[in-house]
């Protein structure tokens, strides 16, 4: 049912990503507080939680888009709390955006090429190879020469993933890449994400559709009101009293 053995060995090694006592405030509003998180290399973690729980804020802090108000972040043996988004990307941690942000005037190919050629210092030929590889992985080769502004929602979401994959990340943060997709489309997406994981990339994936999420994630985190309220094996998290409470007394599934 759930694929839990893949990341099993990761627990014994040092975590690739650590957040310690992380917090982010906007004025008086604490969007994120007291977040502690360890991610093992190769691990796949799902994050759920009601709207406004701070999930996207957490990704923004981890990826360097927001500078955290409190706490520290460690990535791949370095302290990266103050590193900006381009720096995090080059270090090997990349995110996708909940609302796709395509470079609308560029082609699909050129969109992905940006990720390939700026995620790391590599030659042009290598960047082209990586671009083609990421496009194939995300099943977008046939769209390579289309202007990104002509893509539909599904393809825009896949483009977010393809661009991120092209940077050759150690950790990829996915923000609701499956939202609004049909079951068939979601299955195709799960295949893509499994393939990314098979390359040894750690995955942190925010998604509302839990049954889709659990096809990839062996660990589930539930957030509410800016805090992590449950973290562990999916079944345990889903039946946790605090989680049930967060969803207004309804079971999640």
């Amino acid at each position: 049912m759930v694929d839990r053995n893949i990341g099993g060995g990761g627990d014994t090694t040092a975590p690739i990503l650590t957040a310690h006592d992380l917090g982010k405030s906007f004025g008086a509003l604490a969007a994120l507080s007291e977040v502690n998180l360890d991610v093992a290399a190769g691990e796949a973690i799902g994050i759920v939680g009601p709207n406004g729980a701070g999930k996207s804020t957490l990704l923004a802090c981890l990826s360097g888009a927001y500078k955290p108000t409190f706490g520290t972040i460690w990535f791949d043996g370095q302290e990266v709390t103050a590193t900006d988004a381009p720096g995090m990307c080059r270090a090997g941690l990349v995110r996708t955006h909940q609302v796709p942000k395509p470079f609308s005037g560029l082609s699909t190919f050129e969109n992905v090429y940006i990720g390939a050629s700026f995620g790391e210092n590599i030659s042009n030929d290598e960047a082209y190879d990586r671009t083609v590889d990421a496009l194939r992985l995300c099943d977008m080769l046939h769209l390579a020469n289309r202007r990104a502004e002509t893509l539909g929602l599904l393809d825009r979401k896949r483009l977010e993933v393809a661009r991120a994959v092209a940077t050759k990340p150690k950790v990829i943060l996915l923000d609701e890449v499956g939202g609004g997709l049909t079951d068939a489309e979601a299955d195709a997406l799960v295949d893509i994400i499994r393939n990314i994981r098979a390359r040894g990339t750690s995955i942190i994936w925010i998604e509302h559709i839990v049954h889709v999420l659990l096809q990839v994630a062996e660990r589930l985190i539930c957030m509410d009101a800016g805090k992590i309220i449950a973290d562990g094996i999916p079944d345990a998290v889903m039946s946790d009293a605090a989680v049930v409470e967060a969803y207004m007394g309804h079971g999640v599934e």
Partner: peptide, 11 residues
């Protein structure tokens, strides 16, 4: 087209 996305891809 989108400076935030460009930044998150290492630009």
């Amino acid at each position: 087209d989108n400076d935030e996305a460009a930044g998150s891809l290492g630009v």
